[in-house]
Design a protein around this nucleic acid. Structure first.
Lengths: 212, 212
DNA sequence: GTATGTGAACCACTTCACAGCA
DNA sequence: TGCTGTGAAGTGGTTCACATAC
């Protein structure tokens, strides 16, 4: 229905969901844009505008029903169902991702894991038997896989992404330190703590200089 | 010198650095904004404009010296020195962060690790003896610590951040799933794969719907 | 001839401010 | 009365396009 919703808006919705879920657990029934904004470091107008892209979920003079808004946003984002993922790259990083406890409670399941190293293939990681990357295309064709997680070294990351894309994966979570390329209908999100650090240093460096 | 440089520009510089470093390793001497842009999925004008905030590093008709530009950007970002970090939270995630091989080569060193759990305090993680969070303020006052990494559960994350801030830490890498609060002179970057996944589902969900 | 550096034009997102509804 | 929803205004970042320099 809504045809031109900015990406930044979509990126904020999960943040709202997280806050609302927390409030719901605390038994809160109603919240207004003012309070939600303070909690999230966002202006109230921003929140209202964001929500207005999708409908009218509030009640004037009252605010938003926490439960209702949470349900609506989950619906909008597609968080009411399970999402199946495959992980490629079972090194240290890959192992950490498999055992990360944050995915499952939110409905994200790693269902298969792959690696290129023959000495790893066949071993178990957290209940999952590591398969060869050679088997990746076949598995992608057989199973319905929603999301690919890439945790291979930089050199092979683009190739892995190409394979995922070629076999119909439309969403990729990329931990490799590369600027990944993919067609516009494929979403890629990068997780790169080093880039995050390297931009923060700019500001800290400036502050140091000023302090002197 | 830098009048009003947008945060987004600063965020892109490390990406340029990474690409240039890769090109330097490959022996490339010169690059123009066109090619760099294609490599990174950014418009050439964007690159030129970004760089123009800091100086004139190119040569008309030729492009940029890879070596020179790399040096300049590293200087600007403060990547020519080592940065000392502390990690708070030595659970599964924290351990993975300590052993992450990507930090050290870029000059980011985890020098101390802390946890609240008495059964973990005193044990070793990758050469580092885990200290009690109670000792965190003292350590921060004694040692010069540039960056704090937060890998504790959501419930305690804000408290940890407050402690870091109260003791002079100006940059925080936050892995906890919360909207962290800090004064404006403290930079916080969040690493949250779940938020990344939860926004991608929006688009994949839409595509699925369209495909039917 | 070729690619940079940059003011100006453009575009996108954010914030304002207020009408409208509970 | 209080807070939402939303056009309109404002802000900030991106892209254009060309003078400039090699």
């Amino acid at each position: 229905m809504p045809l031109e919703i900015p990406d930044v808006v979509i990126d904020r919705l999960p943040v709202y969901v997280r806050a609302l879920a927390s409030m719901e657990r605390q038994g809160r029934e109603v919240v207004n844009s003012q309070e939600l904004g303070e909690r999230l470091g966002v202006t109230p107008a921003q929140i209202r505008k964001d929500l207005s892209y999708f409908g009218r979920f509030g009640k004037q003079g009252r605010g938003y029903s926490v439960k209702r808004l949470l349900e609506e946003l989950r619906q909008i984002l597609g968080l009411t169902r399970e999402w199946s993922m495959v992980l490629v790259g079972v090194g240290q990083l890959g192992r950490a991702i498999v055992s990360y406890a944050g995915f499952a409670p939110q409905g994200f399941r790693i269902e298969e894991v792959f690696d290129i190293d023959p000495s790893i293939v066949g071993t178990k990681v957290d209940e999952l038997v590591v398969k060869s990357v050679d088997a990746l295309p076949e598995v992608l064709r057989k199973r319905k896989v929603d999301i690919g997680i890439v945790a291979v070294p930089a050199e092979t990351a683009q190739r892995v992404i190409d394979t995922l894309v070629a076999n119909g994966v439309k969403a990729i979570l990329n931990y490799a330190p590369i600027a990944a390329h993919a067609p516009p209908d494929v979403r890629i999100k990068d997780i790169d703590p080093v880039l995050a650090l390297q931009s923060m240093t700019y500001y800290v460096k400036s502050q140091d200089a000023r302090a002197k």
